[in-house]
Design a protein around this nucleic acid. Sequence first.
DNA 1: CTGAAAGCGCTAACAT
DNA 2: ATGTTAGCGCTTTCAG
Lengths: 340, 340
Amino acid sequence: MKKRITLKHIANEFEVSIATVSKALNDSYEISVKTKEKIQQYARAHNYKPNSVALSLLNKKTKTIGVIIPNIMNNFFAKVFVGIEEKAAEKGYSLISCISNESHEKELKTMELLKNGTLDGFIISLAEETQEKEQYQHLKNAINEGVPLVMFDRVTDEITCDKVIVDDFEGARHATNHLIKTGCKRIALISVIDNLSVGKLRAQGYEQALIENNITINPKHIVKIGKNEDFETAMKIVLADKTIDGLLCLEESSAVQSLELVKRMKYQIPENLSIICFTNGPLPQYVSPKITTISQHAKYIGETAATMLIKRLESTTEIPFETKVVKTSLIERESTKKLA
Amino acid sequence: MKKRITLKHIANEFEVSIATVSKALNDSYEISVKTKEKIQQYARAHNYKPNSVALSLLNKKTKTIGVIIPNIMNNFFAKVFVGIEEKAAEKGYSLISCISNESHEKELKTMELLKNGTLDGFIISLAEETQEKEQYQHLKNAINEGVPLVMFDRVTDEITCDKVIVDDFEGARHATNHLIKTGCKRIALISVIDNLSVGKLRAQGYEQALIENNITINPKHIVKIGKNEDFETAMKIVLADKTIDGLLCLEESSAVQSLELVKRMKYQIPENLSIICFTNGPLPQYVSPKITTISQHAKYIGETAATMLIKRLESTTEIPFETKVVKTSLIERESTKKLA
DNA sequence: CTGAAAGCGCTAACAT
DNA sequence: ATGTTAGCGCTTTCAG
């Protein structure tokens, strides 16, 4: 085990000062070509790497971004993370990543912990619990302390900062419209995420589409299922209404589960019942029939968030805060009828 | 935007030395109770946080672990990551994470980049390309430079370090045996990962089970499908042999795809054809029939890897290298027959 | 062309 | 009980 070599070692080796070595390695014009060459060569041979901790201390920049994500097992967040990672790596930033696991406390603690100089800025999507409790003090603190922040997907109006969000309202509205255009008349909304900002927006988009099409909103068709309720039981209650001919599921797992259920109940899909769900992960495309989904362009969201943050970090001037809204796309598959 | 407060500020405030402030905040016996109280209170009021970069420079420890993962969209790796994260957070470590994206170059570059003092150690699973090319110089370098390393899942004998691996051989052997016990006589092996160490081990386990049961190994039943080959075409060629009554798929997506295919071909599952696959992700359990899987205990692997690394980092004495082998579990579902 | 000195924020041994 | 000094590894004036 050879230990890491420092400027000091090199300086001793050639009996010059540390400053000279530093300059030589930075190819300063102040140093003679001869000296530069021998020092650079020695450094290369001994695999010298500047200690980035020392540089961070000096520059008060760590070139590191903190990423706080509610749940990496969620396909959407995993994809966003990939986007962030790619952009960050491209721009020479490292990522310190934390999984809040939907816990407010974990989110808060890691933010406090990391605001100690290790990070230049944060990219965060709020934990479910944070959105439920509406406790945003930790975010306000970060802002106050001048730590740049970019929020994505699960955001809040309480905080003024850069944001990247999905056009959830429009995505749901468009999907609902699509169901209607393909002949569905009685569409149920299945939400297991009504505690999330995005869940609420999607529900609003659904209602808007119904209104625009002069369809009366039937509260019985709006199914909000909590963590502790049994999904299948709740679904059976809705599906007792045999006239239901469309399902808009606000995330993928409820769509896949519903699909299994209605298949067992002998529905023909999409003939008697159409299904669309949010989140374009592997699940909806591996089941049969393949489920039509609303893509949120997760990776692009990640890239955008990273780009926004890095731009702010590297800007010398003040930049006004921005909220970027990413449009969704409907990916038609087998669970919906074709447009005539 | 208030700026981060330092010991110096506090020292100025009370007209004492920086050392006094430092000691006061560390509750040193050297400092009078009065002084301690007023300084601590001031620090709290002004939200003082020690600058961890300065501390890292001083202690030559960053309390940060680098995690290099081939692909976070892969359910197995995502789960391992969760395990690592949980353990690391518990022990007060942060994670710098990189996705190698199966690229040797990305893996190599990030390792070189991060070996600059930012990290205390690495947890890594090799990129596919690294295993194919068998280029391990970057890992050897890390070892030589005294950077502790823990490898998991995709490892190599070329490197001597702590390892956490799955008992892939035994998992495949056990699964194959299970198929045989439930009546399967002609079992095909479906591998899209024969370029990976784990893929090879699983294939060996399969063969071992056949040998033990006096079943002749039929090369036509061993299907290795490369990245550029069409999965469905390859499967149809195998399934032209109508006597095949079992499939052992070495990862989940090929199992799900096979399932769809054989369902279309009107096989009854598990009556005429049984299926088992590796990796216990959501996919196999959401399809119908639910697929029997081999769980690798991904999260536990992550926890173990993190524990091993941290133990080494915090140990003052030399610890011999260890390889922990995690046993798989068979999770029986609907795609296999019940044992009599 | 090279070096001495200061400083990034902090701790610890050593005065006083 | 408090302060001084040195140093972690590096860059950057400013002198020489």
